[in-house]
Design a protein around this nucleic acid. Structure first.
Length: 295
DNA sequence: CACTTGACCTGTCCGC
DNA sequence: TGCGGACAGGTCAAGT
């Protein structure tokens, strides 16, 4: 599910509420959701204060006052939804719901639900729910050195100033015979692009997903880098794409689905040239493009 | 070595 | 209405 714009949206939401919060308790509903025993998890997490919320690629990180880090990957269907007994994360969307017999304010259905895999309880009464239908997502507790090793394997942040056409070419042009879409999805080269935004960025830059990296020219690299930044930024502005399960930290859907040009639109007309969009499988993923205006 | 497939899970949708 | 299969935002390991 969540690619960079969705994770960034959740990070911004949580960064507005979590820093300073102290974890009072932790409830685990699916044992596979964490990387250590529950006893060890609680030993390292409960009593800790969250001092910072940030993102690297598609992963969220809570920095803890004691120096360790909670790292979260939402994979396809993960959600992080924050609730407080008396306040709503986003003004204007308040809605009374009942949790455990106590009325709280939030958006959408009551929590926990049958897909809730873990719950953080904070000393101020607020709660953070980790929901995940498909159970691919995970929470990890990591020391600083483990975090550095794991993030060292991740590629360039596409929204960083260093991410230019030249840089993109340097990163991807090493395997001339691989397909450009496959290369864009390689998290060790670029961190954060997933299936939706790979298709969207390639459409924007008029490059066919199956084009070989070796056939991408200098001006294409520059257009592609620009398209990647453009689509990621625009999606963040619209709070991400809710194709099915993605929700922000208040439980609300993102709005970018209305702005998608090709993803999920196979058979419909190309917004640029009007011809029908193609859909096929590439790199094991559904791939959408316009066979007329993408070369 | 590079690329493809299967596996991990649960849900939805479509054709029969 | 039921059933089987394909497919879904991600990433690994195993197989070719």
């Amino acid at each position: 599910m969540p690619e960079l714009p969705e994770v960034e949206t959740i990070v911004r939401d949580l960064a507005a509420t979590l820093p300073g919060a102290k974890i009072k308790a932790f409830k685990l509903l699916y044992a596979g959701a964490i990387n250590v025993s529950l006893a060890q998890w609680r030993r390292r997490v409960v009593g800790q204060k969250i001092i910072k919320v940030w993102r690297r690629g598609k992963q969220l990180i809570f920095d803890l006052a004691g120096g360790e880090h909670i790292v979260i990957h939402l994979k396809m269907t993960g959600q992080l939804i924050w609730r407080h007994p008396s306040t709503s994360l986003r003004a204007g969307r308040k809605q009374k719901i009942i949790v455990g017999g106590h009325p709280i304010i939030g958006v959408g259905q009551s929590l926990p639900n049958k897909f809730t895999r873990a719950i953080f309880y904070f000393t101020d009464g607020s709660q953070l729910f980790f929901n995940d239908i498909r159970k691919f997502g995970w929470l990890k507790i990591a020391a600083a050195d483990e975090l550095a090793v794991s993030f060292g394997r991740l590629g360039q942040e596409p929204l960083s100033p260093q991410f230019t056409g030249k840089k993109l070419q340097e990163l991807l042009d090493t395997k001339a015979r691989s397909k450009i879409k496959t290369a864009l999805l390689d998290q060790t080269k670029i961190a954060g692009i997933g299936n939706i935004y790979a298709d969207e960025a390639l459409w924007l830059s008029r490059i066919k997903p199956s084009r070989l990296v070796g056939q991408v020219r200098t001006k294409d690299w520059s257009a592609l880098a620009k398209a990647i930044k453009q689509v990621l930024r625009l999606s963040i502005k619209h709070r991400g794409t809710s194709f099915s399960d993605y929700r922000d930290a208040s439980g609300a859907k993102g709005n970018f689905i209305a702005k998608l040009k090709v993803y999920g639109r196979g058979g419909q007309s190309c917004p640029r040239c009007g011809r029908p969009l193609s859909k096929t499988k590439l790199a094991g993923r559904g791939t959408h493009w316009c066979n007329h205006c993408q070369k």
